[in-house]
C-alpha cells in the first residue's frame, strides 16, 4: 500500500514474519514516503517486529524490503549506519554519564573519538540537556532518559529516524518541545521520521502520514489529511431540543445520522444541499441548531475502525 506517488524512504513487499505458530506480520506491503509518518497499532500488532526488520536485525520469513534503497535482508549493517533508532526501553549503560553515553553511541558508528565528543555535546545542546549531561545516567529521570535516547539516535546525523514512543514519560511542556524538535528535524533538516506511538494526538499534531497496523496486517495507510476526511461529505451537528425526535426526522428524510466518539451528531447525505435540509427540518421539528461544522474523522475513530475491521481487504486506503 502506498500513500501517493511521493518519493519513498521505505518500501516493503509481501513481508511476512512468524515465530513458530505466532504470525507477527502477514503480507505487509507498504511504501512510506519522506516526511513524518506515524506507525500506530495496539500492543502485539507487530510494530516492534517491523522496526527490527527495518533495521535488519530480524530476518523476515518471506517478502522483501528496502530502507533508503538498501535491502533489509542483505544490507542491515549499512542501514543501521544511516538510521537513527530511539528504543522504547531505557537502554543505558549503568555508571557512565549522559555525554559519555552519546559519545559511546557515535563511536559505535565508527566516528573518531574526539570528533564524536564534540558532536555529542552539540546534539545534547539541541536536545535541551544541560549540566545533567555530566551525571551518571542511572540517576536520570524518565524524561531526561528520553532526551538522552533521542540524542543518541541523532548523534550520527541519520537520514531516517525511527522513534519508539518518543514522548512517553515527558511532562506536557517537554512533550510539546519534543514534538517541535521532531517536526523541525523533518521540516528544516530534511530528515524522515517514523514514529511508533500510542499517543494519537502526537501523530495528529506532527505527522504527515499514518500507518495503522493491527494483528500484523496493515489496515490503513494514508496522509493524515485523508484519514481525517470522512468517507462521504458530513457535518458535525449540535442541537438544542429533542435530539431523538430530530434524528428520527432526519433518517426519514434519507440523511444518515451517527454519533462520534465525543458524542456529537455526524450527519451525511451524499446527495443534495445537506445544510439547507438540516435547517429546514430543524425548523419543522422545533429544535435549534447550536453548531454546524464540516465533519473530520478523528484519528481515534480511524484507529478504532481499523481495529474492528477484519483484514486488509476491508480497508479503504
Amino acid at each position: 500500500m502506498s500513500v501517493n506517488a511521493a518519493p519513498t524512504i521505505i518500501q516493503l513487499h509481501g513481508l511476512t514474519k512468524h515465530f513458530g505458530n505466532i504470525m507477527a506480520l502477514q503480507d505487509v506491503s507498504l511504501d512510506v514516503p519522506l516526511g513524518i509518518t506515524g506507525l500506530l497499532g495496539p500492543n502485539g500488532a507487530g510494530k516492534s517486529t517491523l522496526i527490527k526488520i527495518l533495521l535488519g536485525l530480524v530476518r523476515p520469513s518471506s517478502g522483501s524490503g528496502m530502507v533508503e534503497g538498501r535491502d533489509v535482508l542483505r544490507e542491515g549493517k549499512a542501514i543501521r549506519a544511516s538510521v537513527g533508532f530511539m528504543p522504547e526501553d531505557d537502554c543505558y549503560i549503568p555508571g557512565i554519564s549522559g555525554v559519555e553515553m552519546v559519545h559511546f553511541a557515535a563511536c559505535l558508528n565508527g566516528y573518531a573519538s574526539l570528533e564524536s565528543l564534540r558532536r555529542a555535546h552539540e546534539v545534547l545542546d539541541f536536545c535541551g540537556t544541560e549540566e545533567e549531561r555530566y551525571r551518571a545516567v542511572d540517576t536520570y529521570s524518565t524524561g531526561m532518559r528520553q532526551k538522552l535516547k533521542f540524542a543518541q539516535a541523532l548523534v550520527h546525523d541519520p537520514s531516517l529516524l525511527i522513534l519508539d514512543e518518543p514522548t512517553s514519560g515527558l511532562d506536557p511542556d517537554e512533550r510539546q518541545i519534543m514534538l517541535g524538535r521532531i517536526q523541525g528535524l523533518s521540516r528544516k533538516a530534511g530528515m524522515s521520521v517514523l514514529i511508533c506511538t500510542h499517543i494519537l494526538p502526537d501523530v495528529q499534531q506532527i505527522c504527515d502520514y499514518a500507518v495503522v497496523l493491527v494483528d500484523g496486517q496493515v489496515r490503513r495507510v494514508d496522509s493524515i489529511e485523508n484519514l481525517n476526511r470522512p468517507a462521504s461529505p458530513s457535518l458535525h451537528l449540535r442541537i438544542v431540543g429533542d435530539e431523538q425526535k430530530y434524528c428520527q426526522v432526519l433518517r426519514e428524510a434519507g440523511i444518515g445520522v451517527t454519533t462520534d466518539s465525543s458524542g456529537r451528531l455526524v450527519v451525511s447525505n451524499p446527495d443534495g444541499d445537506l445544510a439547507g435540509q438540516l435547517w429546514s427540518l430543524a425548523h419543522h421539528s422545533q429544535v435549534g441548531i447550536r453548531s454546524l461544522t464540516p465533519a473530520r474523522t478523528s484519528l481515534d475513530d480511524v484507529f478504532i475502525q481499523a481495529m474492528q475491521e477484519g483484514g486488509p481487504g476491508d480497508d479503504n486506503a
Binding site: 558508528n109 565508527g110 566516528y111 545534547l124 545542546d125 550520527h156 546525523d157 533538516a189
Partner: peptide
C-alpha cells in the same frame, strides 16, 4: 541550553567502523 544553535548536520567520515 546556552549553546543550542539548533540542529546541524554532520558530514564527518566514519573511518573506524
Amino acid at each position: 541550553t546556552m549553546h543550542d544553535l539548533g540542529y546541524r548536520s554532520w558530514d564527518a567520515d566514519a573511518p573506524h567502523q
